[in-house]
Design a protein around this nucleic acid. Structure first.
Lengths: 166, 166
DNA sequence: GACCGATAGTAGGACGTCCAACTAAATTTC
DNA sequence: GAAATTTAGTTGGACGTCCTACTATCGGTC
């Protein structure tokens, strides 16, 4: 979240900061923009979730469990779905569990595996939080449907070139 | 950084996770993509900088000071330029100072203000780090020049709609 | 059936970000 | 000129992310 209103254009800043030193200014402007927009989106969502005692990361985990068939998933699978390091999953589940929104239960056959199950409280919390998140529309109101698709397409190219989509 | 290769497409994931619940699936896909690409870029840059004992945040601060007229700036100005909370600036300057790359000096007329000055060591470190960063080209190799500009334009719309660019 | 590599999860630590609360100093107001 | 307000920066705490290292367990292989 920007700490104050910003009298400085970060794209101009990119040019100032980097000039011809790193790739083309064009590339730097794009990099800076991605970083900045991510920050904007993250802030908007987190602000909407704060009254509900959730962060975006924990909310995503909650949603993931909610839509799972049995309402529970192994931690490993959560990490894959949410693109998170195993230790991050541990962290998030710790906090969700402390709030009573999920609980850890042993896997019936594989004793290495821990299942995380959403609780009734967790389901209620997800519903309330979703309403809050829906209201902000993820801060992407600046784009038309078509432009939103174009943005996704361009980003997909980057991700493909970087070996995302495994 | 993705902890492992990812057998799961986060865009499909967005649809799965959110469905019609939050805005349109189109919007969610874009949000997810922005988040993910930011992560990719951040990881690529940080990996390039790690051998030089820097993170992207600290590197940006170093570059900012390097290109400043006097080689020094008030912390407040650094926060504005880098879009950071004052406490983040304190944190970053603490670490840079501990590494001898910058030093704090009092402002000549305003005793509230602390100036941060890049040291000779800091200048050398910036040079080496910039070479490393240049090599990764910021992970945006998947786009043509024209596409890179298009990406920046789309993101600029989002930022404008969110009150960025103050 | 005993080893041995692969897999699931956790512990501890580093880092960057933010917020709330605080001190010190400058500026504005009356 | 004194009081109130604003501004600059720090401290302490919360959070999410990652990495390295570790334990426990599973599954092949011999």
């Amino acid at each position: 979240m920007a700490p104050e209103s910003l009298p400085f254009d970060p794209i101009a800043r990119a040019a100032t900061l980097w000039g011809e030193h790193v790739g083309t200014p064009t590339v730097m402007a794009a990099v800076t923009s991605v970083m900045r927009v991510q920050q904007i989106l993250q802030s908007a969502v987190d602000a909407a979730l704060r009254p509900h005692g959730l962060t975006f990361a924990r909310y995503e985990a909650l949603v993931l469990l909610y839509f799972s068939k049995r309402g529970s998933l192994p931690m490993r699978v959560m990490g894959q779905r949410l693109q998170l390091h195993p230790t991050s999953v541990t962290n998030i589940v710790d906090r969700l569990e402390a709030d009573g929104l999920v609980k850890r239960i042993p896997h019936p056959t594989d004793r290495r595996t821990t299942l995380v199950e959403i609780t009734e409280t967790g389901r209620e919390r997800r519903l309330a939080a979703t309403e809050a998140v829906t209201a902000v529309d993820f801060g992407l109101r600046g784009l038309t449907e078509r432009q939103t698709e174009a943005l996704t397409d361009l980003l997909a190219k980057v991700r493909r070139a970087s070996g995302d989509f495994a």
